[in-house]
Amino acid sequence: MTVRNRFGTAAAIALMTTVGAVLLSACGPNDADPKATATTAPGTPGTAATGTSAPGGPARPSGPGTGGATTPAAKEVNGTSAANHLTISTGTQTVAMNGTTVDFGTVVRDLAWSPDGKKAAFVNGSGDLVVANPDGSGKVVLAKNPGGETWSHPSWQHAKPMPGQDVPEANERFNTIVFAAAKGNVLRLEKIATKAVGGTPEVLTPHSSEGGDESMPQPPETGNTWPNTGGQRGEIAYANTPANKVYIYDDYIRPATRELATGSQPALSPDGEHLVFVRSVNGHDHLFSRSTQWDQKAEKDLTPAAATDYTEPVWSPDGKTLAARTPDGISTLPADGSAAPVQVSTVKGLPAYRP
């Protein structure tokens, strides 16, 4: 079964979560964002570290009966700190990060970070695709929404030339942002160069099946959404809504699209070797993982005891931790499923990790 649409069709596509401004307290020790604000939020978790280990490492619960140990770390406020790299966008002008909030001066939807963490991509209140600095300055409209379309979930596609493979233009060719575009009832993937200014996106059409065999069943050209990039070869995982399937698209050497799993909202690991996705089980949305290798099809339910919905998963930069959205905020868990999820934030928004 597909992930249950708790947000409505348009909201599930655009993640246009409208909540009150995020109010957090204190700043992380490395927070130098000039637009950061620090205000007290009644009822939020305390400002002591909540068991976060090394930067990007798995969150470890602390307290009686959890088996975890509190580790000294950068001050953490409602799930975010300079040490854990977690950020949360809420569909408002403010983004939670570094133990505080940053005012981007415009609505920020579906924020995603560049591979080096120096730029943020998002959809603004006008539906345009925008990139900006981490403090919200230096905003550039890569592509202006023509109207009548809903853009969502941008992701930075990138690649590095591999030894012995003649792809000298790889870095430039894959220096693009892929996103979902909905027009009417038609969903497609589109892409645009990260250096564009007021450019026109082009449709990204999934190519033929592995090996380029045109006699094989071809992947759907429409109904595609939730693109997510990972690894060093420009791979793109995405979901097809009508089929309730997750695919991976790779044209580094030659075009190839593979069906990987039944589910939605895929997220590729930083090394491109593993995939996490969402699937409904017994009335709740669970997180599943599997290898991206074609001959390794075993799947693992990372949240087998789920009593709530875990959606919109993202990987930490070191590939050890997952963050996911729940109806009550953000939870994290080890990427190998060795421990149950722990709620780290009451901020209700889209999680992302800044490298």
Score class of each variant (00 low, 15 high):
T150N: 11
V3S: 04
G65D: 14
V167T: 13
R325G: 00
Q293Y: 11
V347N: 05
N78G: 06
A267I: 09
T101M: 06
E149H: 11
A26M: 12
V123A: 05
I248D: 00
G91N: 10
D318M: 01
R60P: 15
R6T: 14
E172Y: 02
T176R: 07
T303K: 05
G230E: 06
S280V: 12
L275E: 02
E299Y: 06
A69K: 15
V102M: 02
I236V: 10
A59T: 15
T292M: 08
N78C: 05
T241P: 00
A12T: 06
A132F: 03
A181K: 01
V314A: 12
G164C: 13
A324E: 01
A96V: 07
G57S: 15
G8R: 14
A306L: 04
A324I: 03
R354C: 14
A73S: 14
G263K: 01
G79A: 07
D166C: 13
S53W: 14
N171F: 13
R4E: 13
D271S: 13
G148R: 12
A170G: 10
T311K: 01
P227V: 04
N282M: 09
A180E: 05
Q343K: 10
T44Y: 12
F122V: 10
Q265R: 02
A159E: 11
A96I: 08
D318S: 06
P313T: 06
T200W: 00
L260S: 01
G99H: 09
G51I: 15
V314M: 03
V344Q: 05
T332P: 02
R279Q: 15
S269P: 04
T194S: 05
A36S: 13
N228D: 10
K191R: 06
V130R: 00
T44F: 13
L268T: 03
I88K: 09
D336C: 07
T308S: 09
K320N: 03
V278L: 07
K195P: 00
G329N: 03
D31S: 14
G68V: 13
Q157N: 12
G43V: 08
H286G: 04
S269V: 09
D213C: 12
A21R: 13
